[in-house]
């Protein structure tokens, strides 16, 4: 029997981790593609804008407006292709990537560099 997964219950909103088990966001959105009438998962989407559009289109608009002015992240929606998925467990979804190299860490890296490393005792050598 083929393996079946309930995508809303077991994938949407689940924790994503990288190869080294570093948490790198959650599955904020799931996008299907349809080939010859058969849907399959194309990619996951991550980002505040993705969450906002789940709440209300107006909230999404506001967030987009704020984003274009202040965001340090290049694109509003970060895309994780299904091919990057290594394993789906009860606890998390493991991706075959390095979190620090993905845009899931854009904000984290910006805050580390511009704020946290400037405060004494942050652990930055």
């Amino acid at each position: 029997m083929r393996e079946q997964i309930d995508i809303i219950r077991d994938i949407l909103d689940k924790q994503l981790v990288d190869r080294d088990h570093t948490a790198m966001g959650r599955v904020d959105g799931i996008v299907l593609s349809i080939d010859d009438g058969a849907p399959r998962i194309d990619h996951f989407e991550l980002g505040f804008v993705v969450l906002a559009c789940r709440l209300h289109p107006r909230v999404e608009q506001w967030l987009r407006a704020i984003r274009t002015r202040w965001s340090v992240r290049k694109s509003a929606r970060q895309i994780v292709p299904w091919s990057a998925v290594q394993d789906i467990t009860q606890r998390e979804i493991r991706l075959d990537v390095h979190a620090i190299e993905t845009s899931a860490f854009d904000w984290e890296k910006w805050l580390r560099k511009n704020i946290v490393s400037k405060i004494p005792g942050s652990g930055e050598e």
């Binding site: 570093t22 948490a23 790198m24 904000w107 984290e108 405060i119 652990g123």
Partner: peptide, 17 residues
């Protein structure tokens, strides 16, 4: 809530958010 890396045992530079 947002799936960031977290832990009070990490140094602040490791979990800035």
């Amino acid at each position: 809530t947002f799936g960031w890396n977290w832990g009070e045992d990490l140094e602040p530079i490791k979990d800035a958010r």
